[in-house]
Write a protein that binds this DNA or RNA. Structure first.
Length: 566
RNA sequence: UGGGGCGUCGACAAACGGCAAGUCAGGAGUUUUUGGAGCUCCCAUUUGGAGGUUCGAAUCCUCCCGCCCCAGCCA
């Protein structure tokens, strides 16, 4: 072992390491995660949370959770609560209280007045349409507003009137006075305050003017002494304004240098899903899912209900890296992360999802046995448990084939297989439904000498099946989830992501049977159903009927072989 | 066609002028009382393209091509 300092793992940590070296911020590192409370957090936010809080931890700094609540029309307390819940669940500590942009409204207002007095902002009485027209286009410069040269006194008076509610919504806005001919459209006198008579979830009706994100965000950062303000790529063009504003305010003595710096990285895209609040809210409102925490949603609350662990998500965020290149991460990587985690931690259990009745014809009618089963072969400390066995069992329908294809190793007429932790059984007879001809029951014989699953004569079988004793099993509902979309990039072809919604994204199985040992497991408990996948207890569980969500399947080589044959 | 970014394996992503890491996916084998897990091996003679500089280029220069973002009183 050497105590060599590892190379920073991404360009942002590289910048910070450099700043530490030069003492730019006196070795201080302070980041922030600034969601707008207008929706639930999703995996894209998880990436940002892990980045911001992760950096703070690594550099012995701090990270603020800050609600960017500058647009009361879209924001709600419910979202604030869910965001706090998600950040906490992910395992990050934001201190005793979160921060709110709305707590800075007074300061922002004063700063705006300062800007006006310094000749750096003016009240524009043009309509929104007029402003759009005079802004110019991507290739043509904009034109100055006829109101651009109002005196500071008049601007101050008008701005006060705006605040006092003497003007209608939209009648005028406060604009930064920069350069209407700038090649960067964001520098063409951006609006920084608008009139909006809306009840704010925290400030109520105190204000009828609200700051724009562009203006508010740099101030929030500076007020909180943020050193590195990390955001996504689409804000890159905004950086000149971020710096312009803070410089002007520093000149006026409202802030001290060094000022925070904005750094942009590429947002997360995940295949077979959508990560945009607009689309997610649409899925909820239009009823494509059953709420923000529907286990098919890529929201943190959804994925949590699905059975993912915070550790697996943090690990995922570490593996995907941070860069500036637009990318599409393979859903398979997320699945790998949760399998990897649950493989080490989840107790194994036997559960039959699609039951096929098996009668052991040579097993005494009234006999019962209790067999020992290993809870987790990856973790000896997890111990063992008792599993009841009897004459009538259920096995998985998919584990029997009357006419087994080439590589099918499981049960078939005349074939012997092992029942996990129990006995070798041989299929003697197939019972069919008299009308449909469907296989409804199997008559098998068991070999008493193979108790526990080993044959004294060293006889081998090619398959081991999971099973459940009919008499002892607990009936359960199991919800099998698949991707919400059928295309890796929903909407890529049609332009409407809803066109690619997967009609089979959930399958509810209501006559499943699970081992009695987990009948009373509490919501959130995670298990591996042997050979089937990882499952967790859903909050919909009722006392007499547990409900399980399938978190993810196990890797399934046989399924792959079958799929390849088609 | 203004401005700002970005192009390295199927997907992520290192490499900071010295001879293309790692991970997921995929493939082969081994092992196995989960067709799980584990273990072993394979998987970019080449970095969007073309020139140039250099003993040496993914890294520097020039030109070209492609993709993303910006014309909200959203964030």
């Amino acid at each position: 072992m050497t105590d060599e300092i590892p190379r920073p793992s991404d360009f942002i940590r590289e910048i910070i390491t450099e700043d530490q070296k030069t003492g730019k911020y006196e070795k201080r590192v302070h980041t922030r995660f600034p969601p707008e409370p207008n929706g639930y957090l999703h995996m894209g936010h998880a990436k940002s949370i892990c980045l911001n809080f992760g950096i703070a931890q690594e550099f012995s700094g701090r990270c603020n959770l800050r609600f960017d609540d500058t647009n009361p029309e879209k924001e709600e307390q419910e979202y604030v609560n869910s965001i706090i819940d998600s950040v906490t669940w992910l395992g990050f500590d934001f201190g005793p209280e979160p921060f709110y942009a709305s707590d800075y409204f007074d300061f922002m207002h004063r700063a705006a007045e300062y800007l006006i007095s310094a000749g750096n902002a003016y009240v524009d009485s043009q309509s929104a349409d007029e402003m759009r027209e005079s802004r110019g286009t991507l290739t043509a410069p904009g034109k100055n507003s006829p109101f651009r040269d109002r005196s500071a006194e008049e601007n101050l008076r008008l701005f006060r009137e705006m605040r006092e509610g003497r003007h209608a919504d939209g009648a005028m806005v406060l604009r930064a006075k920069i350069d209407m001919a700038s090649p960067n459209i964001n520098m063409r006198d951006p609006a920084i305050y608008r009139i909006k008579r809306a009840e704010h979830h925290r400030t109520g009706d105190k204000w009828c003017i609200y700051p724009m994100y562009t203006y508010a965000h740099p101030i929030e950062d500076a007020l909180e002494n943020i050193t590195h303000s990390i955001c996504t790529l689409e804000f890159e063009d905004q950086r000149p304004f971020y710096d312009w504003l803070l410089e002007r305010l520093a000149e006026g003595g409202l802030f001290r240098r060094p000022l925070p710096q904005q750094i942009e990285f590429a947002r997360l895209n995940l295949s077979y899903t959508v990560l945009s609040k607009r689309k997610l809210i649409q899925l909820v409102n239009e009823g494509y899912v059953k709420g923000w925490d529907d286990p098919r949603m890529p929201t943190i609350s959804g994925i949590r209900r699905r059975g993912y662990t915070p550790e697996s998500i943090r690990n995922f965020c570490e593996r995907i890296g941070v860069a500036k290149r637009d990318s599409m991460v393979d859903l398979g990587l997320l699945e790998f992360c949760i399998r990897e985690d649950l493989n080490k931690r989840a107790s194994r259990i036997m559960a039959v999802l699609r039951p096929l009745k098996v009668v052991l014809t040579n097993y005494p009618e009234e006999q019962e046995e209790v067999l020992d089963a290993i809870n987790n072969p990856e973790d000896a400390a997890a111990g063992t448990r008792k599993v009841p066995f009897s004459r009538v069992l259920y096995i998985e329908q998919g584990d029997f084939r009357e006419d087994p294809p080439k590589q099918f190793f499981r049960l078939a007429p005349g074939r012997e297989v092992r029942l996990r932790y129990a006995y070798f059984i041989t299929c003697e007879k197939v019972v069919r439904h008299e009308k449909t001809g469907e296989v409804i029951e199997l008559h098998c014989s068991y070999d008493p000498a193979t108790r526990g699953g080993d044959a004294p004569d060293n006889r081998k079988v090619k398959a081991t099946l999971h099973w459940v004793s009919a008499r002892h099993a607990v009936r359960a509902e199991v919800r099998l989830y698949d991707t919400l979309f059928t295309k890796a990039e929903p909407g890529e072809e049609s332009g409407d992501f809803r066109a690619d919604i997967n009609p089979g994204s959930v399958e509810v199985l209501d006559s499943c049977f699970v081992e009695p040992s987990i009948a009373n497991a509490g919501p959130g408990s995670r298990y591996q159903f042997e050979r089937m996948g990882y499952f967790c207890v859903d909050k919909d569980s009722a006392g007499d009927k547990p409900v399980f969500n399938r978190t993810v399947t196990l890797k399934d080589t046989w399924a792959k072989i079958e799929k390849a044959k088609k």
